[in-house]
């Protein structure tokens, strides 16, 4: 604490004020208090200049764009831009680490209608063998993108990254056949998903490991 004005007795000096018996000491501002106050003001000037002088990359929107680009690189740099065709979806049904990404997208967006495990709630059970709008793997991506049943199934095209559509399609396809107890089967039975032939072991670099 800073030195306070003290009289001979070591007591701080009183002002002459007296309000309903309340008196006031004439102590100076505590030094640390004063200088902290000044420091916050000085800091503020520099902070405002730094972020608002117009230098590129410092606005919130620009920082977000950079962050998003970095995240997209981390997520999809290895696999590039996927097309939602049967072969691609089928491939990712069998890539467990990528299936996990599809599962996360499913959990964030789909479980309120299809249930936590795809057992169906308002939306159909995805774990049985009956399908309403799906005949093949490509149909899953199409329904995800465009929706179905006059909005019963919303369209996700503008909300999800095209790669996410492929991966969540793969995840949904992978749920088939578990026959979890949930919503009763709707629609008709369809052919099984096409056979999957694993390519030779050359594509290990496609594992989503490092960023």
């Amino acid at each position: 604490m800073s030195s306070s004005t003290t009289s001979g007795s070591g007591q701080p000096e009183l002002t002459s004020h007296d309000y309903d018996g309340i008196q006031e000491f004439d102590n100076p501002l505590p030094g640390w208090w004063k200088w902290m106050f000044v420091a916050t003001i000085v800091f503020s000037v520099f902070y405002a200049l730094y972020f608002h002088i117009g230098a590129p990359g410092r606005s919130i929107a620009e920082q977000y764009d950079a962050e998003l680009a970095a995240n997209t690189r981390l997520q999809f740099a290895v696999i590039g831009d996927l097309t939602a065709d049967e072969a691609t979806i089928n491939k990712y049904i069998h890539e467990e680490s990528w299936l996990k990404v599809g599962k996360v997208v499913f959990q964030a967006n789909c479980i309120s209608c299809h249930g936590r495990d795809g057992e169906g709630k308002v939306g159909p059970n995805l774990t049985d063998e009956a399908f309403k709008n799906i005949r093949n793997l490509e149909d899953i991506a199409r329904v995800l993108n465009k929706g179905a049943g006059k909005g019963a199934m919303p369209a996700w095209e503008s909300r999800l990254h095209p790669n996410e559509i492929v991966l969540v399609s793969a995840y949904v396809a992978s749920l088939r056949g578990q026959n979890l107890p949930g919503k009763a089967a709707e629609g008709t039975a369809i052919d099984p998903w096409p056979e999957y032939v694993a390519p030779p072991k050359s594509d290990v670099e496609e594992q989503p490991t490092e960023g």
């Binding site: 009183l14 004020h17 008196q23 006031e24 000491f25 004439d26 501002l29």
Partner: peptide, 24 residues
């Protein structure tokens, strides 16, 4: 500022601080 010095029966620590912290 009224009830605390009343209850403690002590003068307020600093009149100057009152001024500066009030206006700021």
């Amino acid at each position: 500022y009224y009830f605390l010095p009343k209850a403690a029966d002590r003068p307020v620590f600093s009149y100057k601080l009152s001024i500066i912290h009030f206006w700021s």
